[in-house]
Amino acid sequence: MGDATGATDAPEPLGFDGQVAVITGAGGGLGRAYALLLARRGCRVVVNEVGLRHGDDVPTAESVVAEVEAVGGVAVADTHDVITAGADVVATALDAFGGVDIVINNAGIGAGTPIGPDAADEWRPTIDATLQGSIAVTGAAWPSLEARGGGRVVMTSSCAMFGASTTPPYSTAKSALYGLTRSLAGQGRRSRISVNAIMPSAYTRLTRSLPDGPMKQMFAEHFPPEAVASFVAWLCHPSCEVSGESFSVGGGRAARVVLGENRGVRLDDEADPAGWGALVDDLMATDEVVYPRSMNDEVTWQAHTLGRPVPAELGPGGALDWDRRPR
């Protein structure tokens, strides 16, 4: 039984015996924490990381594999670049373990410059490492997930999705993962492939690079990577029925993050631009917000608020999951 604080009786431990996980960017921080936790629970792990440890000649991926083996786990190292060789990352899993059940897209870089004439070129490395790398690895693993009767994919978004004026390319790439997650979850539904995203807060190589100050100190004191790893493990377990969602995760806390829309306003004289200004208070209101779950849901919501007839098969309880309920 639970109580008012949210405490419950201890659940059964989640095991991953026989499962295979590909974890990108697993040479440290969050990826390393995922690899160790899953391996301790019986999962066989592909530790993907490009490059060497700082000041050492041992590939980072191999050093994490050694840690996994030290706790009794099974893992193999992979040093392919997720951007240019996503299929090779997955091939490592297929060659070593015969398939893939879990993909955790953790690789990415946090860098960026302000918008300007050269932004398209300057932003490309950040967008490619975060977005294109996730697409490449997930796409390469998808046939194996389907062949094995389903699986789990986790994308790594960021609270930068709420806006990050100091690093707009990072915010842009992480925001794109929200739509990618929703779309792939819809595609994967028939194949029992669940796709979710996390927006983690953790003290990692990225946050250690923050300037000294209260923000960096807060990360160091309150947001260990291990506190995110347990939530990711739950998302990756066959018992988890959640799909298409994004969660802010850190410090032992998780919260659903949603894209909502209010009821909107309607202009009687559609040719008068000034009329919109007179409706700005209602336009910006948040007292009634709904959460469409797909592009089609949003369009039918528009039709509904305009008083247009909505085909019965598109309404609540029909073929589409249309969540109109204010919460």
Score class of each variant (00 low, 15 high):
Y291V: 14
M1R: 07
S239N: 12
R190K: 09
A39E: 03
Q132D: 14
V58L: 14
T113P: 00
S209R: 11
I115A: 07
G98V: 13
P125W: 13
S230N: 10
S201K: 12
G86A: 02
D56K: 11
A4Q: 08
D88K: 06
D272E: 08
G116Q: 05
A33R: 08
D57Q: 12
P200Y: 11
A185R: 10
T130V: 11
G277A: 05
R208G: 09
V45P: 00
T305K: 12
L36A: 01
A227M: 15
R266T: 01
G51M: 05
G277W: 03
V65E: 11
P326K: 13
G139E: 14
D321I: 02
V310R: 02
K174Q: 04
E122Y: 06
D281K: 15
R190G: 11
T286A: 03
L279Y: 14
A21I: 01
A35L: 00
D17Y: 13
G163P: 04
E288A: 06
G27K: 05
V58A: 12
A10G: 03
E261Y: 06
S63Y: 04
G28R: 09
R325L: 06
N196C: 10
V100D: 08
R148D: 00
P214W: 01
I198W: 07
A4E: 10
A140P: 04
T92C: 10
P59D: 04
Y203V: 08
M161Y: 11
L38W: 02
W322L: 14
R327S: 14
G18H: 05
S157C: 00
V22H: 03
E62W: 00
R263S: 10
T24W: 11
L267C: 05
A140H: 00
R266E: 14
A229Y: 01
D323H: 15
A160P: 00
W301N: 09
S201T: 02
V242N: 04
P326W: 07
D287C: 07
N262G: 01
L36N: 01
F231T: 00
T181W: 05
G213V: 04
R208I: 05
A75K: 05
L306M: 07
A173F: 15
D95N: 08
A140C: 12
Q302G: 10
R53L: 13
V154Y: 01
D57W: 11
A96M: 01
T286R: 11
A70P: 03
E69F: 02
V265Q: 13
G2T: 06
Y203L: 09
A93F: 08
G116C: 03
A164E: 11
V50S: 12
T113A: 08
D323F: 07
G98A: 07
R41P: 00
N196L: 01
V68G: 05
G150W: 04
G150T: 00
T130Q: 03
P225I: 03
A129W: 15
P316K: 12
L306H: 05
A77P: 10
L14N: 04
N262K: 03
M1F: 06
F16A: 11
Q217A: 15
T60I: 09
